[in-house]
Design a protein around this nucleic acid. Structure first.
Lengths: 221, 221
DNA sequence: TGTACATCAGTGAACGCGCGTTCACTGATGTAC
DNA sequence: TGTACATCAGTGAACGCGCGTTCACTGATGTAC
């Protein structure tokens, strides 16, 4: 394969960056890694050599921008979590109804995961050992979670959800959506029913499960 | 490490099986693989050489009992799913109440997963490519799922759950428990609240979400 | 009871491979005088 | 405007390693006569 590519000059070697433009290669490495993830969906099966070849650069060139393979994964994760957070924010802002906002968020979560299974895998399916000098609070992923807690809090404040701990309820929402998509991705051989039916059911159960108790609904109103 | 073991004779070479006792080694291989999974929790990081060393046998000996590494994983999975199914059955049979049975099942699911994260990982977290000649219906894992569908059906029949599709509801139950434990296992750095509180919440939401509608409860009774 | 032989449960060495990473280097680019 | 030089973005070859698997074999065990 690589022989053919060489002899046919299919993959031209990338033009070398000018001074001060080293950052360009860094971005190219990150996006090449994503491309490869899109194809194999497993970071551990992607080698530094494969990434280098995709970029059109020699393997050691990667080490000018990343200390090692783990650091590359970590930066990729942070970028993806930033994007993920934005998508969730947009979904929530599509409506003023706090319960509807949470539902929209759930739908967008599933959409994001199935549209980008490779991203999703990096974010939630691999066991990530993060650098010890990074605390969980400064991670984009954790910030996205706090956004969800706030959305739940709003629904509680407006009397739409019963008086649950918003952190617990947010974890419940998160884990239920995660469970669905991770099994959809990881167990493709399972005889799944239609996706929309499934997502609707999961969101229905969450909505009903978090709704105010019938007996309390009058005293609360 | 292995040098020290050799020179100190810590790990004696396993006694050779007598004729017709070849099956013994097969079981030893399976249980050694489980031991290793308990330590690393990642099948792809466990090599045939490591398994052979743990058993006290040479690497090629494994190929007398398994065609290749994938077949070893598959047999391990089937054994574990069989055990898993039994645990779920026992949990359900602890009560006559159909809703209680489903709840007990959910609790036992979390317990099983956290007690044996390595098993759980093999069952639900790795992308398993099964041999093409095996159909999903004959897998122990699928049978365990059908048991859950039946339990849900019972709760619907007895008027305890609203009139949901039992397959869809069972998938909802399954995915919500899976989401919880898989994130507990895979994101240990997340600031999780107390486990019992979490499990209670998830089961509460499922129970409330599947309960009969208040407005229908009188006409149904 | 004794012996030749088939069987079976393994062994030991090697295969070719791809991996992450390091090291000494190169050669175009920009800068100082 | 011309040239010596420092810098910077890379390169090419190699390191040592562990992997899954294969192959020719060995030697104890059981069996037939």
């Amino acid at each position: 394969v690589s022989e053919a590519a060489e002899s046919l000059d299919i993959k031209a070697r990338r033009a070398r960056a000018r001074r001060g433009e080293g950052e360009r290669l860094k971005q190219e490495i990150l996006s090449a890694t994503e491309q490869l993830l899109a194809e194999t969906d497993d970071f551990s099966k992607i080698s530094m050599r494969m990434i280098a070849e995709r970029v059109g650069v020699s393997p050691p060139a990667i080490y000018m921008h990343f200390a090692d393979k783990d650091e590359l994964l970590f930066e990729l994760c942070e970028d993806r979590f930033g994007e993920f957070r934005k998508v969730m924010q947009e979904a929530r802002s599509s409506t003023d109804d706090p319960v509807g906002a949470v539902r929209a968020c759930g739908r967008a979560y599933v959409q994001f995961a199935l549209d980008h299974p490779e991203h999703y895998g990096v974010l939630f399916l691999s066991k990530t050992e993060f650098p010890t000098d990074v605390t969980v609070e400064e991670l984009n992923g954790y910030r996205a979670f706090l956004d969800l807690v706030a959305a739940v809090q709003r629904a509680v404040d407006e009397g739409r959800y019963r008086d649950v701990d918003p952190t617990i309820a947010a974890i419940g929402l998160w884990t239920s959506m995660h469970g669905l998509v991770s099994l959809l991705i990881r167990a493709p051989n399972f005889p799944w029913p239609e996706l929309d039916v499934l997502v609707d059911h999961v969101l229905d159960v969450q909505t009903r499960g978090l709704a105010v108790d019938p007996k309390d609904s009058q005293s609360a109103g």
